[in-house]
Simulated scan of single mutants.
Amino acid sequence: MTRDEVLVARGLRKAYGDRLAVQEVSLALRAGEVLGLLGPNGAGKSTTVGMICGLTTPDAGTVTLAGGVSLASDEAGYKRRIGLVPQDIALYEELPARMNVALFGALYGLASEQLKRRTDEVLAMVGLSDRANDRPATFSGGMKRRLNIACALVHDPEVLLLDEPTAGVDPQSRNAIFDNLEMLKAAGKALIYTTHYMEEAERLADWLVIVDHGRVVASGTQAELFARLPAAQTLHVEIAGEPDDAALAGLPGVTRTGQRLDIRVTDIGRDTGPVLAALAERGVQVRGLASARATLEDVFLTLTGRQLRD
């Protein structure tokens, strides 16, 4: 474990009968960093999160916090440093929002004055101060998600695990959650974030781990993962007339649709000039030019395939 790492998981493995849900998953999380944990349905994301937070016992592997603290060495101390926002809403629907947060804080041993202060702080952070005395049964889905986050933060953990925290919420609540997470990151918290929404991972994640069939198939920064694509950017070229298809065939990575050419390149700045020169040599008249870069979804589908996962 390096000096700025707050959590390191090594060789995590979990089987349910004959099915290996997680196989040799390793990852490291640093202070002030969001790690995006991505994968298709059934890839092992939630099982991995469960092992990291101590809800699921791994068959093999270790998870260690800074200072060498682990579930094996100090379970209570370990769990006090972890906050979990589960995939399924975990609230007492008939208790007021304030009591929900206070209950979770009391379970972590917060004293009365500290508990009141922290309860007020986290409810304000998630925008629920004015509904603190209302029951979650009266809340929208987005409000329940935000209250779940408040419950996970009341004991001020170093590490926050969020398992699809924006599932089923409206755009306003989603953006409020993003703002909360970016504020936590700026404050030095370490976050693990699982999601099926690639645009969320693109916005939030500093480091990405993609799992499939229980194994890590890729990890790195977004730039490092984009570099694994055979072509990470596309030139969209509008042409005049009907050029000779045989001439176009000499250009690599070209797809023609009517009078539009889609040309896959690795670097727009470097490759645009040579592509335009090659078209001019072939007598192709260019009427318009646009470009687009690959998305994280392109990377994800390249690594995990397009087969449905139900």
Rank of each mutant, 00 (worst) to 15 (best):
Y108L: 05
Y108S: 13
E113I: 08
Q114S: 13
Q114L: 10
L115W: 06
L115C: 01
K116H: 13
R117C: 03
E121M: 03
N133G: 14
D134S: 14
S140V: 12
K144P: 01
R145M: 05
D156Q: 12
D156M: 01
P157Q: 10
E158Q: 15
E158P: 01
L160K: 08
L161F: 15
L162S: 02
L162M: 14
E164F: 10
E164M: 11
E164Q: 11
P165G: 08
A167N: 13
V169I: 15
V169F: 09
V169D: 04
D170K: 12
D170F: 12
Q172I: 14
R174M: 10
N175R: 15
I177L: 15
I177S: 01
D179L: 13
E182P: 01
L184Y: 07
L184G: 09
G188K: 09
K189H: 13
A190S: 00
L191D: 07
I192W: 03
Y197F: 13
M198Q: 03
A201E: 07
A205N: 10
W207Y: 15
V211Y: 02
V211N: 01
G214F: 03
A223N: 09
L229D: 04
P230E: 11
P230R: 06
A232M: 12
L235V: 04
L235S: 00
H236N: 11
H236A: 13
E238W: 13
I239Q: 01
